Computed example of a mutant assay.
Amino acid sequence: MSQVTLEAVDYQADDAKEKFVQSLRETGFGVLKNHPIDQASVQAIYDTWQGWFNQDSATKEHHLYNKGTQDGFFPARISETAKGFTQKDIKEYFHYYPWGQCPATHQPQLDNYYQQTTAFASELLGWIEALSPPDVAARYQEPLSNMINGSDQTLLRVLHYPPLAGDEEAGAIRAAAHEDINLITILPAANEPGLQVQLKDGQWADVPSDFGYLIINIGDMLQEASGGYFPSTSHRVINPKGADMSKSRISLPLFLHPRPDVVLSGRHTAKSYLHERLTELGVI
């Protein structure tokens, strides 16, 4: 394990913007503490959705995902396979969009969090743009924060990593090494550790998982838009050991996606880039 560690940046500090963007530049990840996202609402979502995932499969599959729009429940049997891997990740999840399907009793809770965190993402994208060197900023076809305005593609994923039984497929882990597709991802520290990022030297470093921290990482679309200045780095969720194998893990990433018409580079719009990546992943 690498000795390099990610440090949480105090959102309230005078130099928060600079330290945060520098961390993104160096590792593709930034961690914030004392931020405005309400932690009570995060815990409430963890509790509510743990109960939902504890239901029997037939009940959950009343909300089985729509193939065309990708909203709804994705059971473990059709979970993602990371690019370059053959084993499916050990997880199940629910895709929430404000326009998509959702259990009626759970929708207000998710929508409140979705709106609150999307608004915060606009602020963070403003930080990133403000501290981009002039030659990098010149690549942005429009302000970064504007790219997500009016987008109906931003995705809130409620992830459930079930307890491990010990009979999992050889080599399978909760989330194999991968990069995110979108501009940035915002993730409240989950209720269990396991998230790791791959550093420039190839070694893996634990991402701080203290409850109350907020984890932000660069996605492929921002890497594309910045000409590689901001790196979309590989990350994974490793399997727990010992007594922790019996614990579930809930995770709540919000993937900030631009409007489909946004021009990322001379090669891609957001729509063409997303289609290419989802095809590679076998999702479409």
Rank of each mutant, 00 (worst) to 15 (best):
H257P: 07
P108W: 15
A172H: 14
G84S: 09
V263H: 12
M221N: 10
K33E: 15
S145D: 11
M1L: 15
Q198H: 02
P108I: 14
L187G: 09
A16M: 02
K19Y: 12
L254D: 05
D10C: 03
G266A: 04
Q196C: 05
V42N: 10
R236T: 08
P163Y: 01
S145I: 14
L264C: 06
L124F: 13
Q70I: 14
N112T: 15
F94G: 01
L156W: 02
G228C: 09
Q87T: 06
D167N: 12
P193S: 03
P134M: 02
A176V: 08
L144G: 00
D15P: 01
I250A: 12
E80W: 13
F29G: 02
Y114S: 01
H95P: 09
H268T: 09
S2A: 10
S41N: 04
K67C: 10
I216S: 11
E26K: 13
L144N: 09
V9A: 00
I250L: 15
A13H: 03
K17A: 11
G72R: 00
F211C: 10
K17M: 15
P188S: 11
T279L: 12
F74A: 07
Q55I: 04
L32E: 12
P36G: 00
Q43Y: 10
Y140D: 00
E80V: 12
S232H: 08
G171Q: 11
G219D: 08
L110G: 07
F85R: 14
V237T: 05
R77S: 14
Y161G: 02
N149C: 05
D152G: 12
K200I: 03
F120E: 08
P188A: 04
V42I: 06
S232M: 10
L6R: 03
L156S: 07
D56Q: 09
P134L: 07
E280P: 08
T269M: 15
V207K: 02
E276L: 09
E7M: 08
T117D: 13
Y114E: 13
F230I: 06
L187V: 07
A172D: 07
L64V: 11
E276N: 14
A243V: 09
S248L: 07
H275I: 15
L124R: 04
Q43G: 11
I45D: 08
Q109D: 10
D220T: 06
K19A: 04
Q203E: 03
G194S: 00
K17D: 13
S2I: 02
A176T: 05
P253F: 07
I148L: 12
L110F: 06
N112S: 15
M1T: 11
A165H: 15
N34F: 03
L156A: 05
L110C: 00
E18H: 01
L256I: 08
D10L: 04
S226V: 06
A137N: 04
S23W: 05
I184D: 03
Q55V: 06
I181C: 13
I37H: 10
V237S: 05
G28P: 01
L156P: 13
L254H: 08
A121M: 02
L159G: 01
I215K: 11
Q101T: 13
R236W: 06
S132Y: 14
S209R: 11
V207Q: 04
I148F: 09
I184K: 02
S232E: 06
P193V: 01
A165R: 15
I128Q: 02
P240H: 03
A138Q: 12
E192N: 03
N182Q: 11
